[in-house]
Design a binder for these strands. Structure first.
Lengths: 327, 327
DNA sequence: TTGAAAGCGCTAACAT
DNA sequence: ATGTTAGCGCTTTCAA
């Protein structure tokens, strides 16, 4: 593996000159620079990033730790972060914590050890520990879910409000017994969506189930709800992965979305317009969340004294037929 | 940021002892080890991975460069790679090349510079350049699409064969003018699926369009095909993202999958059973592809002299109603 | 404009 | 069992 000394030897100059030439410093003779470039190319030289970063005490890579690679909401965030980061010369590495606190912990540790320039994190749950990041002074921005203490910037979506709006929409459509299917307790988005729903139906009329943010759990939970003495005639579902399970549950009971059970789900997944009837959704600005997060992170990297900020983006209800009786 | 010397000073030992204690070497007095642990904890010490890896000349991170984070096929591969890697103490960082050769090039460069232990790559297209990896001796395994020269192990899916089987299935279902919608020329999976289809219908009866592996392009291409003088009465679609576009096209023409136009699509995405009629698919063993790839990569990392191998996994046709006239 | 040399933080001989 | 020391590959003063 060719090192800078190999290149220096081949070009007949010092390692300092190679370094300067390869980093485009203006103070180097064009002729020498060319010789260096050539030597580097011939040797297939790739600077050792470890050594470079160790010396420079900085890296041009951001870590993005998300809680589920298979959830379109998070992959859209990833695109947003990436598009913006690339433009500023940063690479972003994606880590999948898989809604698993142990994995999340490991990836934060990796980010710390590899001395990444900054971290975008969608905290997995209750006990996310960002103390290490804070101590090291690694810039951090939380997305989707807030962090216990404001350990950095946050980019959130006003999902409680959106849940309330969706619930009102269902009520306005003539549904009388609106229920809610949400994620695990302690996961802020899950709690907020439930709260927004409860705000509207009133504590006395709450009927809900919790499940993991996964299809299978949601299917079972939906079935339970449907088997109650006074089953819901409409359902607010906390994300698109769960919606899959809910739709399966309905189908297995011979129930048609809209006509029999009104459905509104969070997240405008690509398939939601394909089904019959098309799914009414709460569209979250995921890509934008990612962009803003990256922006804040880069700003904080170049100026660590900035005040921590919280940005809250609005979600948008997209009415389709699954929330209409006449679907 | 605390360094190993800080810990050493605090614990009243040498840096060597700190290093040994923290790395669980057996040759260190339990009492001292405890003192070191304590000092490290108090200082919030995180070993500098850059320095460590520079010294050790190795990293415990794998890079996984995939061509589309929003494609369930690739995220399933990611899970497979991750599950296996984690088990051996490796972390995996995901890079999204976005079907873009420039991005892919950048990420390969990053992988090279950061001296990752190995790379799993789904080559984006024609001109993927893995020369750098080869020269550095960085272990590489290609997934989904083969590499020009056998630059390492490969894990592929026998998609030509699967495409042929799917086409035969359509023909057996009574469809007479089977068409094909595939990805860009030069992308091996796209070419193979087209070839498998052509193998069965015969060169003379080929009717097909190419588009990016995206919904919108596929929608337009499908519309073109449907507007031909002798339009297809069935379609083989090269992936689930394209299938979304195709289904939209059909719907906009008032055509029902199955009854009017038989449909088989590659990839068993989670929503394919939700639509009416449910989609007949060619299910690729994506998770397994990831697992095998990680296995091969780890094997090659520990024994670089291994022969390069090619593993070809079988895809499975799952018959549902979109390929039946009586849907 | 170029080179010599120090040093980033760590680990692994080598000594003790 | 512990400490001393060299050095991984690079960048960056400092001198020339």
């Amino acid at each position: 593996m060719a090192t800078i000394s190999d290149v220096a030897a081949r070009a007949g100059v010092s390692t300092a000159t190679v370094s300067r030439a390869l980093n485009g410093k203006s103070t180097v003779d064009p002729l020498l620079a060319a010789r260096v470039q050539e030597a580097a190319a011939e040797l297939g030289y790739h600077p050792n990033g470890l050594a470079r970063n160790l010396r420079r005490q900085e890296t041009a890579v951001l870590a993005l730790i998300i809680s589920d690679v298979e959830n379109p909401f998070f992959t859209a965030i990833a695109r947003g972060v990436e598009d913006l980061a690339q433009r500023s010369g940063y690479s972003v590495v994606l880590c999948n914590s898989d809604e698993n606190e142990e994995k999340e912990r490991r990836y934060i540790e990796v980010a710390l050890q590899e001395r990444v320039a900054g971290v975008v994190l969608s905290p997995t749950g209750r006990s996310t520990n960002v103390e290490g990041l804070r101590r090291q002074g690694t810039p951090l921005v939380a997305v989707d879910r807030p962090l216990p203490a404001a350990a950095g910037d946050q980019v959130l979506v006003d999902t409680r409000h959106a849940a309330a709006e969706a619930t009102r929409h269902l009520l306005a459509g003539g549904y009388r017994r609106v229920g809610c299917l949400t994620g695990p307790a302690g996961v802020r988005t899950a709690d907020d969506r439930l709260a927004g729903y409860a705000d509207v139906v009133g504590e006395a009329n709450v009927r809900f189930r919790r499940a993991e943010y996964r299809a299978e759990g949601a299917r079972l939970a939906a079935l339970e709800l449907l088997d109650e003495p006074s089953p819901p005639d409409a359902l607010l579902v906390a994300n698109s992965t769960m919606a899959i399970g809910v739709l399966e549950a309905l189908s297995s009971r011979g129930l048609r979305p809209g006509r029999d059970v009104g459905i509104v789900s969070f997240d405008d997944a690509p398939w939601t317009t394909l089904i019959d009837p098309p799914l009414t959704v709460v569209a979250q600005p995921a890509y934008e969340v990612g962009r803003v997060a990256a922006q804040l992170l880069l700003a904080r990297i170049s100026d660590s004294s900035r005040e921590a900020s919280t940005t809250t983006l609005e979600a948008r209800l997209i009415e389709r037929k699954s929330s209409r009786r006449t679907g």
